[in-house]
Design a protein around this nucleic acid. Structure first.
Lengths: 225, 225
DNA sequence: GGACCCCATATTGCATACATTCTGCGGGTT
DNA sequence: AACCCGCAGAATGTATGCAATATGGGGTCC
């Protein structure tokens, strides 16, 4: 929106991302207004925007809190991303330009290099490369406002950070290879291949983050026996 | 959010839905504030919320306008709904309770009856039954906040109304039978069946709304020859 | 005659003040 | 001792006033 409100949005995002405010913490309006040097009005608007985006949740007369993602919700988010970004990968493959392909390949290769050194990566860099890669896919898909906003509402920085931190070395390298394979599928102009790998990529991230998931037919809580 | 703001959200929605404001029309803050008998503050918040929801679009210092959906964006919306609500149908089938199944069946049957009389339906009733049906599927899917909000951001009342108005008798009856079939699939506890029918349901709606769509391999604009 | 500039007006963006609601604590009662 | 009532403090919700920016028209210059 306006320059002032938008800077507040970024400011609050930074505060949440940097861990100044953890999951479940309260975000007071006056407190933020003082911290960012503006009045309550733009702060209120920024909080509403971030709430609509899914990063905060607001309850009337009680204020804003950082959302606390339950495992069930994380599971749902990645299931949705598998569907939506799978679609994005398919469409991107149908429309991608050679320049975009080169850009994607560059990002995939750099991601590989950043994760190739074994444990002890530069997580910030890996995070950035990953976010760029997924964003460019959506962009290449001809991203109308709907696709873009749905993906944005699903890809919260906080979740991504948490995800990367829980990745072990195997999951990290697998994720990197997925990126490379997606580019290969797109170069082959094979939308179905690209879609499948992208879905697998996100479902594999879900598994790395949450472990195996129960399903209806499984025996009841075998882990407790 | 607060009672006042929420009532303004509903009020603006009604104004847009009833056609008081058409696609592309400007929504002045003072104008709405006067019309709804409140101050500009809750109006501003309501406009921001509706913009985040996708019904309006706001440009800094220029105010809010009703979004004008292009055919490409409508196409994208239904493609996304096919993915996301397909997932919802699958999960709903895995978790639905007998009571929810009865409710869904009731809605599907009423939808059938409302569309069975041939052209000249009560479109408002059909709209309501359709919205309820889709909403209950999401609910039965165990709708976490992510799934719910994504679907809500995709299912704009305005789009649905436009869609229903463009349905001919064949498309309307087909849509109704899809609802019945989805319930049948859920009763059979067949998630894959339910997912496929739901996806087909939405892609068929897309076709009814937009006509056949071009694809990469098709000859260039054969309609002009 | 056309294009450009400048200003008046209206609208949005931001700040502040008032009203309302929630929260936490203390005292009293059962 | 436990519970309930009521009040004080603080935070959110709403209204209004001021500043900044976009829009439209009239005038002037080329």
């Amino acid at each position: 929106m306006s320059t002032e409100t938008e800077s507040v949005v970024d400011g609050v995002r930074r505060l949440v991302l940097s861990g100044q405010y953890a999951s479940g913490d309260r975000l007071g309006e006056v407190e933020l207004a003082a911290a960012l040097g503006v009045s309550r009005t733009p702060v209120r608007e920024a909080l509403r925007l971030l709430a609509a985006e899914g990063l905060l949740e607001i309850t009337p007369n009680k204020g804003a809190r950082v959302v606390a993602w339950s495992p069930a919700e994380l599971e749902e988010i990645f299931a949705l991303r598998a569907q939506v970004e799978g679609l994005a990968a398919r469409r991107a493959t149908e429309r991608v330009t050679p320049e975009q392909l080169d850009e994607l390949e560059r990002l995939a290769v750099e991601h590989s290099e950043a994760t190739g050194a074994g444990p002890g990566y530069d997580l910030e860099r890996v995070y950035e490369l990953n976010a760029l890669f997924h964003g460019r896919i959506v962009q290449a898909a001809g991203g109308g406002t709907s696709l873009t906003s749905v993906v944005n509402s699903l890809v919260h920085s906080v979740v991504l950070h948490r995800t990367l931190h829980t990745f072990d070395d195997v999951a990290m390298k697998r994720s990197s290879r997925h990126h490379v394979e997606i580019v290969a599928a797109m170069r082959s102009r094979d939308p179905e291949w690209a879609e499948c790998v992208m879905r697998g990529h996100l479902l594999s991230a879900r598994a790395a983050l949450l472990g195996p998931r129960p399903h209806p037919g499984s025996p009841p809580t075998p882990t407790t026996l």
